[in-house]
Design a binder for these strands. Structure first.
Lengths: 197, 197, 197, 197
DNA sequence: GATGAATGAGCCTTCATTCAT
DNA sequence: GATGAATGAAGGCTCATTCAT
């Protein structure tokens, strides 16, 4: 009995995951614009109708995929985050996490970039996505208080800390850039120089 | 009156411009994904068929629009660029140009962001777009030689110089950020701190 | 009742047949050139999109229709074919079959003529269509061996045997010709005189 | 003065001929269905609008082209026709003419076949096209009267005389048939056997 | 007479979604 | 829950034709 019950749940999750993975894969291959529901279905080896069991509509599928990826990126960024470390070390550690994760999951990254620059973004509850970052925000605030970090709006700090990474790691923008350990180190040093007092 | 002596050519340019402007406007309003040729035509007050007189196909229209905007942004960035100024001043001046231009032309910016994150980008000859920036590249190299700027790959310098701007100025990412003169100054100072030795 | 135990399959075949019949009917009425997919759909009381469930594209629809008709004509021609009859009788019987079938199915005939004179023909595997005729070919060869039929290339024999029928029966070419039993007999006699030794 | 006047007329005829030749060539290459006015214009190195100076509309262009070709074929067929020759010789001579002309002008032939099997045919005044053949008709009638030719409807005679040629010479139908002198002779002999008493 | 520009209508095809099973 | 079939609407693009020059 229980076995059967669990099997069903597992099956469901597998199928839902397959659909989301197909979505990401397809967007990578043919782009956001050309990724239709039926193509995604074919890629996931399910019927188009099945997608509408797991997601309300195309929009819901896309938004769910985005939220899921963003959550993954967030937890990657925050992995091993230690607020007791010196501010600089903690931030650079996070930055390196980010670099590494994105470099190893270009597909995810492509999807988020295309999604974030589409009107679909407006449907996402940004606040919810920021949750996991609160330790980092606290640390930044702490750094400001301690006169270690420039006392400027948070947006400025974040933009200078992590935005360059996203462009460097994007093959479409920097096809020749290698996310080597040295380059990562260099970039994080520069980011730190930007925000430190 | 002399201006109009070749009526036909003038007409052409007006119509072509109208189509491109409609493209930008529509992408702003409903997004890249939903912007169809016929909608663009309607927006530009022309027949869909007319668009195919001025552009080979949708792809060509989009790419042309992109190249045109990028060229505008480039010349805005480089406006009043003076390589004889102290490196810092010259770079910050360019940065402020960029800030200002993008802030005042959000529509253009939206278009480029959506385009750059679509497969269409791969069709653009990037090298051609970099032409106008060579004075800036030279200045950076000069700064490196003079031990004023960090001796790191160009990509790193550019990413840290101008990438934060693009995210800060994007209302979709930073809806509350104001591109006030102070904020611009602050951001440029941070960017300079990132790249200076 | 047993017939309907697989309701879905039955439905499919009915719809596919409806589409093909609509194709033939439309080509008859407005011609090959003007027969668009959406007109065919309307004629068949289905959505244009439905056609693409049963056929890969317009080309496939047209080719399939052609092959189907040609198969029908072939089996009509060969109906009651008896290689044990005297050569003359067997051939004339086939010819009369052909005459009769075409006269009674002008719509089919119109379609094939328009199709055969379009570039679509090049997509058809002619060899496959010739299969049903092999008994007839054998008989011809037999007639040659027995010195009853002229020893000339098969193409010549076939052209003189059955080609006049196609033009006679075509109202577009011979609007006043009546496929009366006498006329049919006459024509077949002439055809026989052409090929007999 | 006169020179200029003649030049203009010549120019016109050249252009009209260029358009018709482009039509034939295009239909040969891409088929009747795909041959659009603008493609024909491009092929003839004229503006689409120019075509509408020489022809009322597409239909008129097509019909005119057809009539012109049919006239050429007719005069080829009747070339050197000598009603004083023995009936058989005169008819076979005409048949050989036809064979030769079509073999050497496959483009023309393709066009007529596609045209004749389209609804455009209904717009042609068939009677007018038959004019040049009256000597041939008279000869046939003479042959009937002399009990040399079967006394059957004219349509039957013509169908058996010249229809096989059209199929034999059509590479779409008989890709391997060679219009060699022997084959031509053979076919004409068969045709004669069909109609002779 | 000759043209490039312009167009609404229509082309073939695919879309996001729902239905019957 | 899962599906293949079905669809009206819309996609990008070309059509036959006319207009202004």
């Amino acid at each position: 009995m229980i076995v059967y019950y669990r099997t069903m749940r597992v099956k469901d999750e597998i199928k839902e995951r397959a659909i989301i993975e197909a979505t990401v894969a397809l967007v990578n291959e043919i782009g956001f614009v050309s990724s239709s529901v039926s193509k995604i279905a074919k890629r996931a080896n399910v019927s188009p109708a099945t997608i509408y069991i797991y997601f309300q509509n195309k929009e819901d599928l896309l938004v769910s995929t985005y939220v899921q990826i963003k959550t993954c990126i967030a937890s990657a960024l925050m992995e091993g985050f230690d607020p007791n470390l010196p501010v600089r070390d903690a931030l650079l550690h996070a930055g390196e996490n980010l670099f590494r994760y994105i470099s190893n999951h270009t597909e995810l990254f492509y999807f988020t970039e295309q999604f974030a620059n589409s009107p679909y973004t407006d449907l996402v509850d940004k606040a919810r996505l920021e949750g996991p970052f609160s330790p980092l925000f606290n640390l930044l605030q702490h750094g400001i208080n301690q006169k270690i970090i420039k006392d400027v709006p948070f947006e400025l700090l974040l933009a200078h800390l992590y935005q360059p990474i996203f462009s460097l790691v994007n093959p479409r923008i920097n096809p020749d850039f290698k996310a080597s350990p040295e380059n990562i180190k260099l970039s994080m040093t520069m980011a730190w120089d930007a925000i430190k007092l």
